[in-house]
Computed example of a mutant assay.
Amino acid sequence: MDQQKFLEILNECATSCDNCYNACLEEENVKMMSNCIRLDRECAEICRYLASAISRNSPFIKEIATLCSQICTACANECRQHEHDHCQKCADICMKCSEACNELL
């Protein structure tokens, strides 16, 4: 996968997590969504950090990508537990991003 395509996937995942995070805050039972919200934030931040590391040619790209894959998978697994459309969409892109990170490794 070329670098530009990978950066697009990272950005798409971060944006999807931000959207899910915001939508979860509007759900009737926000407390039930707390772990989803937490993981959405973690995932969005690590995806943006990895994109930044790639753009500056960090010597730690593989380590950050490993962590990014783990967090994306955790976020996807959490989102899959919720029936909301925003959670299901987020889970799909998080798994796509996790797979892209693994491909990079």
Score class of each variant (00 low, 15 high):
residue 1 M to E: 04
residue 1 M to H: 04
residue 1 M to F: 07
residue 1 M to K: 02
residue 1 M to S: 04
residue 4 Q to E: 15
residue 4 Q to V: 15
residue 6 F to T: 08
residue 7 L to I: 15
residue 8 E to H: 06
residue 9 I to E: 00
residue 12 E to S: 13
residue 13 C to K: 05
residue 14 A to G: 12
residue 14 A to I: 11
residue 15 T to C: 01
residue 15 T to Q: 11
residue 16 S to V: 00
residue 17 C to M: 08
residue 17 C to P: 03
residue 18 D to C: 04
residue 18 D to E: 14
residue 19 N to M: 02
residue 20 C to H: 04
residue 20 C to R: 00
residue 22 N to R: 03
residue 23 A to H: 01
residue 24 C to W: 00
residue 24 C to F: 00
residue 25 L to G: 04
residue 26 E to L: 15
residue 27 E to M: 15
residue 27 E to K: 10
residue 28 E to H: 07
residue 28 E to Q: 13
residue 29 N to I: 12
residue 29 N to S: 10
residue 29 N to F: 06
residue 30 V to Y: 03
residue 30 V to D: 03
residue 30 V to M: 12
residue 30 V to C: 07
residue 31 K to Q: 13
residue 32 M to G: 03
residue 32 M to W: 14
residue 33 M to A: 10
residue 33 M to Q: 12
residue 34 S to Q: 14
residue 36 C to L: 06
residue 36 C to W: 08
residue 36 C to S: 10
residue 37 I to D: 00
residue 38 R to T: 03
residue 38 R to P: 00
residue 39 L to A: 09
residue 39 L to R: 05
residue 40 D to W: 01
residue 40 D to R: 00
residue 40 D to E: 09
residue 42 E to P: 06
residue 43 C to Q: 06
residue 43 C to T: 15
residue 44 A to F: 10
residue 44 A to G: 13
residue 45 E to A: 14
residue 45 E to R: 09
residue 46 I to P: 02
residue 46 I to G: 03
residue 47 C to F: 11
residue 47 C to W: 09
residue 48 R to M: 12
residue 48 R to I: 07
residue 48 R to E: 11
residue 49 Y to P: 00
residue 49 Y to M: 13
residue 49 Y to W: 07
residue 49 Y to R: 05
residue 49 Y to C: 11
residue 50 L to W: 09
residue 50 L to M: 11
residue 52 S to K: 11
residue 52 S to G: 04
residue 52 S to P: 01
residue 53 A to Q: 05
residue 54 I to S: 00
residue 54 I to H: 02
residue 55 S to T: 13
residue 55 S to E: 14
residue 55 S to K: 15
residue 56 R to V: 15
residue 58 S to A: 13
residue 58 S to C: 09
residue 59 P to E: 01
residue 60 F to C: 08
residue 60 F to R: 03
residue 60 F to I: 07
residue 60 F to K: 05
residue 61 I to W: 05
residue 61 I to M: 10
residue 62 K to E: 13
residue 64 I to M: 02
residue 64 I to W: 06
residue 66 T to D: 11
residue 67 L to M: 12
residue 67 L to W: 06
residue 69 S to F: 07
residue 70 Q to C: 06
residue 70 Q to Y: 11
residue 71 I to A: 03
residue 72 C to Y: 01
residue 72 C to W: 05
residue 73 T to E: 11
residue 74 A to G: 14
residue 74 A to V: 07
residue 75 C to Q: 02
residue 75 C to F: 08
residue 77 N to V: 12
residue 77 N to F: 13
residue 78 E to M: 07
residue 78 E to G: 01
residue 78 E to A: 04
residue 78 E to D: 14
residue 80 R to W: 11
residue 80 R to I: 13
residue 82 H to G: 02
residue 82 H to P: 03
residue 83 E to H: 08
residue 83 E to Y: 03
residue 84 H to M: 12
residue 85 D to T: 13
residue 86 H to M: 08
residue 86 H to V: 05
residue 87 C to A: 04
residue 88 Q to M: 05
residue 88 Q to A: 03
residue 88 Q to N: 09
residue 89 K to V: 07
residue 91 A to L: 08
residue 92 D to H: 07
residue 95 M to I: 14
residue 95 M to T: 13
residue 96 K to H: 10
residue 96 K to L: 15
residue 96 K to G: 04
residue 98 S to R: 08
residue 98 S to K: 07
residue 100 A to W: 04
residue 100 A to Y: 05
residue 101 C to G: 01
residue 101 C to R: 00
residue 103 E to R: 02
residue 104 L to M: 09
residue 104 L to G: 02
residue 105 L to S: 09
